[in-house]
Simulated scan of single mutants.
Amino acid sequence: MKQRRMWSFTMLVAGFTVYLLFNEPGTAQAMHIMEGFLPVGWAMFWWAAFLPFFILGIMRLKKMTKDNPELKLLLGLSGAFTFVLSALKMPSVTGSSSHPTGTGLGAIMLGPLPMGVIGSIVLLFQALLLAHGGITTLGANAFSMAVAGPFAGYAAYKLIMRMTQREKLAVFSAAAIADLMTYVVTSVQLAVAFPAADGGVLASFMKFGSIFAITQIPLAISEGLLTVLLWNWLKSYSPHELSLLKRQTKGAQS
């Protein structure tokens, strides 16, 4: 029964994803950093920075699914949740946009390394199917959303749980901070690629960061609340799978 309910929820998320595929218009100024927007040197740099995390994430996922194949459904749920949330965009600044990321939930359940793989696959599908982001900028977008965000969210979750043992607060903070960190890193990426004529990289970072903050702070709060609701649902209907994931992540740390 629990597996059926979880499957139904996953299919609901997948259905919404299909709706987005056929109804979301692609634009050149769409999600994430768009195709061709970064200079070639910086695009290559962010690819190089991202790939080690992707490789380590694949190794981690292979071990997780080999030891417990039943966890594949939760992996799919994490990917669908990330795809749907990160496909909801609000125009923010030339070459990019603001949106939820959905990576905090996966970082809590799976750890940050697997989200490097899941998040990058989500970004690849969005680039190919929705014209959101691009292939040349995939390394930069994946580093900000699939690496920096999950690591920051996971660290926030662990810190708050250790200090307060308040799980809902920890889940909320993980999702919100993963969202905000994605845009801090995106602002850095845009700033170093396009330093301001007056003030250089720092002035450019303040410009990009302040524009993102207008839309991103309320989006991060909303994502945190939604993630808490979904976390409570998972605890009610899939406690066995969550306990397996906890043992997996503890084993990876030891």
Rank of each mutant, 00 (worst) to 15 (best):
P195R: 09
F37L: 03
V147P: 01
K158C: 07
G149V: 02
V147W: 00
A197I: 07
K89N: 12
G95P: 04
R4N: 08
V40G: 10
K63Y: 03
W47H: 02
Q29D: 08
L230C: 04
T17D: 03
G119D: 08
S8H: 10
M6L: 12
D179N: 15
L202G: 00
M90C: 05
V201D: 05
W233F: 14
L234T: 07
T164P: 04
T182N: 09
P39Y: 01
A80G: 04
A170P: 03
A148M: 14
V93Y: 12
L129P: 11
L73C: 07
H32F: 13
K62A: 10
A156P: 06
G106E: 03
M115R: 11
L74H: 02
K235Q: 13
R162N: 14
Q165Y: 13
N68S: 10
L242C: 07
T27D: 11
L245R: 02
V40S: 05
Q165I: 06
L234Q: 10
K250W: 11
G57I: 02
A203P: 04
G26P: 04
I211Y: 05
L20K: 15
A48H: 02
A193H: 08
G15S: 13
Y19P: 13
M44P: 02
G134M: 06
A178R: 01
K72A: 12
L245H: 00
L219D: 01
G224W: 04
I177L: 15
A14M: 09
G153I: 02
Q29F: 11
I177T: 05
M59W: 03
V18L: 14
V93P: 03
F37G: 11
L21I: 15
L51K: 00
Y19F: 15
T94D: 01
A14F: 12
F194V: 01
P239H: 00
V228N: 08
G149P: 03
L226C: 13
G76R: 04
L73Q: 10
A148I: 06
V93C: 00
G251Q: 09
S243T: 05
Y19A: 15
W46M: 01
P195I: 01
R162G: 12
G153E: 14
V147C: 00
K250R: 08
M34Y: 14
F172V: 14
I160N: 12
S97H: 07
K207L: 11
A213F: 03
R5D: 07
S173C: 14
V40Q: 06
V40R: 06
Q189E: 09
F212S: 08
H240V: 07
K66W: 15
L129N: 05
G116T: 03
V122M: 05
S78E: 13
A176I: 14
S204R: 06
K158Y: 06
F194D: 08
F212C: 13
Q189L: 02
Q189M: 01
F45A: 15
H132S: 12
W231R: 12
T27G: 07
W46E: 00
I217L: 14
E35Y: 10
I55N: 01
L180F: 15
G111W: 06
G149R: 09
G36R: 07
T10Y: 06
Q253L: 15
A146E: 00
E35A: 10
G106S: 02
E70L: 03
E167M: 13
A49E: 00
M145H: 04
M115P: 00
G209Q: 05
L75P: 14
S204D: 09
G199H: 06
A178D: 11
N232M: 11
L113E: 09
